[in-house]
Structures are given as structure tokens and as C-alpha cells.
Design a protein around this nucleic acid. Structure first.
Lengths: 349, 349
DNA sequence: CAAAATAATTGGAACGTTCCAATTTTGTCA
DNA sequence: TGACAAAATTGGAACGTTCCAATTATTTTG
């Protein structure tokens, strides 16, 4: 149908100028005369020219490619979908386009996709590392000067920037809140124990218990897959204890929703008979019934900040690693049974 | 730190062969002797060479770029996140990498990102078009011979392949099922009326009502945003009718969850006091309480099939448009109150 | 063992752009 | 108007790869 692709030479010929001039107008250089610019632009439109970034990138010093990569460990988790949306927003309006890949927690897949992205000349990478990612996996990337921003999870020993949420403080606040409501037996439900995130959150849980002079019972810590199904399983186990907990902090919101499901299956009303607190504040948390009390990390905002950090490093040319821990706040809704607070407060008016 | 990037010439020099030979081994050509191949591969590893696809693509006839684009209208909707995961799977194992962009229903953004992807030389595009997308928006793409597969939504008049689910049949089956359970006043809740998907589903609803000799009441059709919040709003409105519905089919699962939330807020038990059916069968549908009866479209499978179709067209070189409507099935769970069926069936044993 | 056939390797042109240095055009001023 | 400065334009080399035709090395065969 259409002939060969139209190049800068074609439009030079058609506009009666040299290819250099065309190149200049493509880069909006101030060197070119207004009337020539207009003429060239007109021809560009007429011929339906499309810029070949590959060719341009070949000539230009490497990595002004206007491509960044984002690889996440579980895109089916809406936390990461939100994160990707946040990244997409800032990246898009900076004229970049993003490669997105899902590793499903496989380091092999992760290695492959990162290699592939590198071949395509990404100028930066946002990475939520798969479980078991080693600092060596990132070595070649940073050696070649490509900025990397780790999100959500750190990689020990990797000299790259990171943006994680304050897991310790978040969980501490959650537990303190429950203790303040009078709960003594508070469970910690869900998550895989071999991850840094899990351990940070667990430490927050422990520290809060000791702050509040509550005993730490190991059987109240029940790990599971960090998913809705995992939440069901975890509360299941917790309810089988001789001495049941009366409240739970959960590894994340997905687990918390599962916990609510499991409670209902036992004819317990989450928020009334049992207090539940999540972590993440995914979008459904506010509309669910009961609305989920949770630690808000604003995944979309986190994506935006990660992207901004990455773009900054790309533009700076030099990427000195900075570790940002993003502060986090407790959002009290119905699922922790503290709605009474609100009623009381209202009655004071 | 590192010097300039290592090229095919560097490794040719180091291996004592010509760049042509190196190129040959890169493409795993059978023309090259085993021992040379081994030597070259060793050097490649040693020097940490990374293939420059941009350069390769420049020389090769256009669009063996190993990049495909996927642009969706709402990535925060887990349906699309799942879809993207499905695409990612097949695309990844075919050695491709995907650009992913979210348009948030903006045709302007959509135009921009598609243009940008084109500049980067995608060899194919999977598109869930933003509302209001015109066939002209896709014209330049198909004119330049880039295969496009529309998913979820069609674009009238565009000569591109499409893969949509059987909206009409799905909704018809849902309504028939409810009618079969004895419901007479069945509402249709959620969705924007100016979309093709909405109208197909609505038509299925209407046809089923007339099949089952039920009256069609306009006030039982309540549109809203196709989201959880929209579902809350829609059931809210439906419950204010003098003559309330006793069951509802929902535009999608997000709406259905919202409807359940809204019902509970009115102290109605979804699945007991009111039957609810969704559409999509997102991953949470089976674990929610009550488990959601819904029309299963298997978004991940849809993503996989879309990707396969696209890859087929890319490889074929020629992309003759084919329109696939993906069949769909009713998955009966608790939310429609038909769990009794199961009990009855069991008691027959 | 020479000739022919086959296997393996190679140099150079090409892909579409940018950049540099050089050139041409236009404008200014004494 | 001539000299000079400033503005605008330009040709060609370079980026890292692939492809083609041509060359060289190795085998086979009569």
C-alpha cells in the first residue's frame, strides 16, 4: 500500500531545504528562520512524516531515548496497578513512554525483561524487585550508568535509589490505635516472612505491643500469601486458637479483605465483633463495607514520586542513590470498630 | 566509570573475527562454525556486550522491533490490569517487550501516546479505545501497516481486528437465570449509556426480558459510572423506587460490588434479600463474600488471546482484520441467591 | 591431485538521524 | 558601497547494526 517510510530527506527535498535544516526544526532549534520553519512543518504534516527515535537515539549520546522501564512483581495486585498509573502520569507528560513488565515474583523473568529493556535502550528503570532479587542482578545496570529507583522493596547492598513506605511506623501506629481502643489480643496476619517488608512491619507490631505494655504471643503472628485468599486462610487459623484475638493488623489490604471475608464466614461482623486494620489504602478500601481502616501509602502518589525521582536522575546525568522513606498515615474507617469515636465526637457538638 | 558502550566491532576485534561474523552469531545463524561461535560468545560475555536493538532495527526492514504497544482506557480497573498481565505473558515469552500506557478515557492522551509509540517503532498495538475514539484516529496507524487489535471496545468503521466479549449473550443469560429463579423486577445497574458495550449489554437485558415475557420498566435501568462508587449510587437510586426491584444485573463486577455495599448499608443482605449478578469475573469475584455470580470473561485469557492474534498478524506481515467475539459464561455463585440450587441438587443424590 | 563443490568468513554500503565545521545569505554601519 | 557581523543554511561524517556480494578456506570427488 504505502511506499517506503518517509524520512527527513524526503521532507527536505519537498520543502526545498537541506536535511540539516529539517533536523533543526524537528528539535525546535531557534537557529532556523520562522518562514522556513513554517514551510517545513507544513510539509511534515502533508507527507505524514513520523520521527524515527531509534535512528535519532543511535546518533545522540546514548540514553536520551525517552523510554523508561517499570517492572513490578505482581501487577494483578491493584497496589501495583495504581503505582503504574502514577508513574505513567508523570512519565507521559514528560514525553516519555514506559515499558511495563510483570515478573510474577520470578527472578528469572525479571532478569530477562531487564536485559530486554536494556537492549531497547531505556534511560531509567523503576523496579519493584521480585522476591530473592540480589544486588548482583542490578550490578550491570548501574555499571552502565542507567539510573534505577527501587520501589516498595529494597535490595540490600544495591547502590540504587529507593522509595519505600515507612512500614515500621505504619504498623506501629495501627497497633497503638487498636490497643488504645482496649484490645489486648491483637493478631498480625498475612505476608511472607522472608521479605524485608514483612519484617519491618512485624517489628513495628512488636515495638508497639511493648510500648503499650502488651504481651507478645507468637501464635498471634500468622503468615500467609499476601492475597485475599491468604487472608481467609490466616484468620481461619487465628480463630482456631483457644484464646482468640479480638483484633488484627494485616500485612496489606488484600489480606484484610480476606480476613473480613473469613470473619463473615464465621458469622462474625468485621468492625463490630472483630477489629481489622489493613495496609496500603488501595482504592477499594474506602468503598468497601465496612470501610477499611488502613495505613495509607497512596500508591499512585508513590508512583508519581518514583517517576519524578527517576526523571531527576536521568536529567542530572549522574544518579547518586538516595533512600526515601515515604511517610504513611493511619486512616480510621469502620473496620476497626472505632466509628464509635466519631459518634461520640459528634455528640459533643 | 565505564568507557563508551561496547559494540559489535569491539567484540569482533577481541575475538579476532570480522563484525559480520559477530552479527551472524548474534542471530544464531547456522552459517558460522561451531568453534568460532563459541569463541565469539565467550567474548560477548566477557566484555558485557549489550545488543543495540535500535541500531539493528534501523537497518532491518521496519518493524521487527520486538516492541508492541498496549494502551488501555483505565488501568486502575483491575479488569485491565488483568488484561495487561495476560498480554504481558505471551508477549514476554515471544521475546517482545510492551509499552503500556493509560489514557484515563482521554482521546487526546490516547493520540499522544499512540504517536509516541509509533515514533519508537512498535510493531503492533493492542488498544482498548478511550470513549469517543474515532476511526480516523487509527487511520495513520493502519495505513503504515502496523497491525492493531482492538479489545473490549470496537471502533466503528476502523478496519482493524477486534476481540470483544459477547456482551449481548452474557447479559441475556444473566437475566434469564434471574427470571428462572422467579424474579420479576430485575434492574440493570451501572455503566455509561454512550458506549457500545453498554448498549450491547442493555440489549441483551431487554431481549431476555421479552423472551421471558417480563415487562420492561425504564426506571429499572439506572446508569452510573462503571465503578464501585457508581454501583453504590445506582442501587441507592433503585431502592428509592416505589416498586423496588428484587434483583439486579450489573454493568460490571466493580458496579456489582458497589451494589452489594449499598445493599448492606440498607441492611439488606446481598444474595439473601436481593440477587446480584456482575459482569467480567474479576479475580475478587470468587473470594468476595458473598461470592459474586457473574459473567466470566477471563480478562487474562482475553489479554493472551489478543496478544496471540497480534503476534500472528505481525508475523504474517499482512493484517487482515478479523473480528472475534469471545464467548462468555455465567458463573453461578452466592450473590444471586441460587446457592439453593446446589443444595437441592446435592439432596437428589 | 586438480577441479569442483561446499562451508565459512568478510568488507563495505545502507538504514535515518544528529552534530560539527564550513558556507552562504542577510543585515548593519561608517 | 564596501567591510564586517550576525543569522541561516548546508554537506558530510558518525552512531551500531544487517545485508549483500565477494572472497577465502575446507571438503569432496572423479
Amino acid at each position: 500500500m504505502t511506499k517506503d517510510r518517509v524520512t527527513v530527506i524526503d521532507i527536505a527535498r519537498a520543502a526545498g531545504v537541506s536535511k540539516s535544516t529539517v533536523s533543526l526544526v524537528l528539535q525546535a532549534s531557534p537557529l532556523v528562520n520562522e518562514v522556513t520553519r513554517a514551510k517545513v512543518n507544513a510539509v511534515i504534516r502533508d507527507l505524514g512524516y513520523v520521527y524515527n527515535r531509534g535512528a535519532a537515539n543511535l546518533r545522540q549520546s546514548n540514553s536520551k531515548s525517552k523510554i523508561i522501564g517499570i517492572v513490578v512483581n505482581d501487577l494483578t495486585n491493584s497496589f501495583f496497578a495504581e503505582l503504574a498509573v502514577g508513574v505513567d502520569m508523570v512519565v507521559q507528560s514528560a514525553g516519555y513512554v514506559q515499558f511495563l513488565a510483570n515478573t510474577a515474583e520470578s527472578v528469572d523473568r525479571q532478569r530477562e525483561v531487564i536485559a530486554s529493556m536494556r537492549e531497547h535502550g531505556i534511560s531509567g528503570l523503576i523496579l519493584s524487585p521480585a522476591r530473592g532479587t540480589d544486588a548482583n542482578d542490578l550490578k550491570p545496570l548501574v555499571a552502565s550508568g542507567i539510573p534505577v529507583v527501587n520501589v516498595v522493596r529494597q535490595v540490600a547492598g544495591a547502590k540504587v535509589s529507593s522509595l519505600v513506605s515507612d512500614n515500621h511506623a505504619g504498623m506501629r501506629d495501627a497497633v497503638r490505635h487498636l490497643a488504645g481502643l482496649g484490645h489486648h489480643r491483637i493478631a498480625f496476619l498475612g505476608g511472607f516472612p522472608d521479605t524485608a517488608v514483612f519484617n519491618e512491619r512485624l517489628q513495628g507490631y512488636r515495638d508497639a505491643l511493648s510500648d503499650m505494655d502488651l504481651a507478645l504471643h507468637d501464635e498471634l503472628v500468622v503468615s500467609s500469601a499476601p492475597s485475599r485468599a491468604g487472608g481467609v486462610a490466616a484468620i481461619e487459623r487465628a480463630l482456631m486458637l483457644r484464646e482468640r484475638p479480638t483484633a488484627a493488623v494485616c500485612f496489606n489490604d488484600a489480606v484484610a479483605f480476606g480476613v473480613c471475608d473469613g470473619l463473615r464466614a464465621h458469622r462474625l461482623d468485621p468492625g463490630e465483633d472483630f477489629a481489622v486494620i489493613g495496609f496500603d489504602d488501595v482504592i477499594e478500601a474506602q468503598t468497601a463495607v465496612p470501610a477499611l481502616t488502613t495505613i495509607s501509602v497512596d500508591p499512585q502518589g508513590m508512583g508519581r514520586r518514583a517517576a519524578q525521582l527517576l526523571l531527576k536522575q536521568i536529567n542530572a546525568g549522574r544518579a547518586d542513590a538516595e533512600a526515601i522513606v515515604s511517610s504513611v498515615r493511619l486512616v480510621v474507617r469502620q473496620s476497626c470498630g472505632a466509628a464509635i469515636d466519631k459518634r461520640e465526637r459528634l455528640s459533643l457538638l
